[in-house]
């Protein structure tokens, strides 16, 4: 029992030194012995608004030196790269409203621009900015500019036209009131047009290690269980829809072959955005 406890402590220590690769966590290298019946057993806890656990088994995977990897904002938000998990940039959301009229622009990623327009006539418009859905692993405040113009029916500027800049930290919101009125020369305002530029620098992330895969041989298998649902894999990505709670992972060999392996895992919500994923807990190391 003491030996197992020591292995557990060492494994947890080793895991704690791993950073996320993409946004998937990595088990680190594990070893399965040739003992008949040998099975490694792990527990992963998902919290927040988890919909499913994304899991990939990597047989005989080795690692290269740590590398600087640019985070790619061009990747569609919410997609899952089978190897690295979802790639999420920092984002802003904007909502423009006037009385019961509303329009919005969501997921304005770092380095991108979006425009919105609301036809509300003369009067006060309210612009709200927030960071809901941004990558919370990136802690720096986002820099933005808002350029707005009050326009008449033929898109001539009436009153109120300016550029403001600001910054927004994760979890914060900002509001601007923009007043459009009648111009002596161009007449009544028909609409307010706003251009939001997310000027935040695209962050580079450092992955702990670049995983080099070898094709699955079928000599190593993993099962992921939650409640009364189970899935099996020999290397392909699987998604087990089990919500929040503890997921069990079993790794074994149908031919009792010794294997080095690792696995990547990530708790995701229905939009494939990372929720809260625990480090692995080793229940049995064989």
């Amino acid at each position: 029992m003491k030996k197992i406890a020591q292995k557990l402590a060492l494994s947890l220590l080793a895991c704690s030194t791993f950073e996320q690769s993409g946004w998937a966590l990595d088990s680190g290298t594990q070893n399965l012995t040739t003992t008949v019946g040998a099975t490694d057993y792990f527990k992963i806890n998902c919290a927040g608004d988890t919909d499913h656990l994304n899991f990939k088994l990597l047989e005989n995977a080795t690692t290269a030196d740590p590398v600087e990897t640019p985070d790619k904002p061009s990747v569609t938000i919410g997609t899952v790269n089978p190897t690295t998990g979802p790639i999420l940039p920092q984002i802003l959301n904007a909502k423009l409203s006037k009385l019961k009229l509303t329009t919005s622009a969501s997921k304005i990623a770092a380095g991108t621009i979006k425009e919105i327009s609301l036809s509300g006539g003369n009067g006060s418009y309210l612009l709200n900015l927030d960071t809901i859905g941004t990558n919370l692993n990136l802690k720096n405040s986002q820099i933005y500019s808002v350029q707005y113009q009050c326009l008449n029916t033929v898109n001539k500027v009436t009153t109120g036209s300016a550029i403001v800049t600001g910054s927004l930290s994760n979890g914060s919101t900002k509001s601007y009131t923009i007043k459009c009125s009648k111009s002596k020369t161009t007449g009544d305002t028909s609409s307010l047009k706003i251009k939001i530029t997310n000027k935040t620098a695209i962050t580079k992330i450092k992955s702990a290690a670049q995983v080099i895969e070898t094709p699955a041989s079928g000599n190593l298998m993993a099962q992921v269980l939650k409640g009364v649902t189970a899935l099996n894999t020999i290397g392909e990505v699987l998604n087990l829809q089990g919500g929040n709670g503890d997921y069990s992972v079993m790794v074994n060999s149908p031919v009792n072959a010794a294997k080095n392996y690792r696995f990547q895992y990530s708790c995701l919500n229905t939009s494939n955005i990372e929720t809260k994923t625990s480090l692995i807990q080793i229940l049995q190391d064989q």
């Binding site: 008949v36 019946g37 040998a38 057993y41 099962q223 099996n232 079993m250 149908p254």
Partner: peptide, 30 residues
């Protein structure tokens, strides 16, 4: 916190884990 793996046609095993629910998964390597 215990799990073991079994392959076919190798005889049976006695798993000393007492009273309660044993979870069994049957799967394949391809």
């Amino acid at each position: 916190n215990f799990v073991t793996n079994m392959t076919p046609n190798r005889g049976g095993v006695e798993i000393y884990q007492g009273e309660g629910l044993y979870r069994v998964t049957v799967d394949k390597n391809g």
